[in-house]
């Protein structure tokens, strides 16, 4: 609580706490959402056009390399969404931010969706490139574990009725599961894997040709915007649902 001697929060923290009010979040998000969808659509269309029709084919893999423009952004987002959920888990347990558990609950199915896209497209890319749909190597296995963690988190939300208890249990599970993120990232360095090592985020800069890197980064931005838009809609749904829950509880207590 702020008293007369405490200076008001500035900059990022001021914005962080000003959006802590669900009512204010609903107003701002409704205003931003159409623009966010427009930006997502334009970025996605540009990225797809460049990736499918302008970028050159790979000298070794040929045209199958074009799967990279959805496989890699989906893999990034699968991990990024989990990182977002980890920050939200800290928001629930440490800062008690009123929207932290809403954000976490809304993000989990989206993260699971991106991880499924990553695994399926990786399999479709693996067959013509490696001659196999699947291999139990460290990278693929750790991404599969990420999917299982997402499914576990979604199941835990559904298993506990009381929202506060569910939020705390899920936050703890999310923090424990975060150990998998560095394992995914460094699996290709720590173990001998069929999956290739990092070619974009690595020491010494990207080793990928700029003509291929540009559409890849554009698709990465498009997927991030897509996540932001879906996440906001799911958060709105959760906030409205909780309002309805409170109203139902009030009506039930009056009847008692």
């Amino acid at each position: 609580m702020t008293d007369a001697t405490t200076p008001p929060a500035q900059g990022f923290w001021a914005a962080f706490w000003s959006l802590a009010n669900p009512g204010r979040f609903m107003v701002y998000s409704a205003r931003w959402l159409p623009w966010l969808w427009l930006l997502t659509g334009l970025t996605m269309a540009y990225g797809l056009y460049k990736g499918l029709f302008v970028a050159p084919a790979d000298y070794q893999q040929g045209e199958s390399m074009r799967i990279m423009y959805i496989h890699v952004p989906a893999a990034w987002l699968g991990m990024f969404v989990y990182a977002t959920m980890t920050v939200s888990a800290l928001g629930t347990l440490v800062w008690r931010h009123p929207l932290a558990d809403v954000s976490q609950k809304a993000a989990a199915p989206v993260g699971a969706g991106f991880t499924v896209i990553c695994l399926v497209t990786g399999s479709f890319w693996g067959k013509p490139t490696w001659g196999t749909w699947w291999e139990w190597d460290a990278r693929m296995t750790s991404v599969l574990v990420l999917l299982l963690i997402y499914l576990g988190i979604i199941a835990l939300w559904r298993a506990i009725d009381e929202p506060l208890r569910a939020a705390r249990a899920v936050a703890i599970m999310t923090l424990v599961g975060a150990i998998n993120l560095p394992i995914i990232k460094f699996s290709v360095d720590w173990w001998n894997t069929l999956h290739q090592p990092a070619s974009v985020f690595k020491k010494g800069g990207p080793s990928i040709h700029p003509d291929m890197l540009e559409p890849l980064l554009v698709m990465g931005i498009a997927f991030s915007l897509l996540f932001a838009a879906i996440h906001i809609v799911r958060m709105q749904a959760e906030i409205i649902d909780r309002r309805a829950d409170r109203l139902a509880q009030r009506a039930a207590s009056r009847e008692d």
Partner: peptide
Amino acid sequence: GPHSPYIYASYGVA
């Protein structure tokens, strides 16, 4: 080319 089915399937599923 010959990799078209894999590319179509990937983009379709996504």
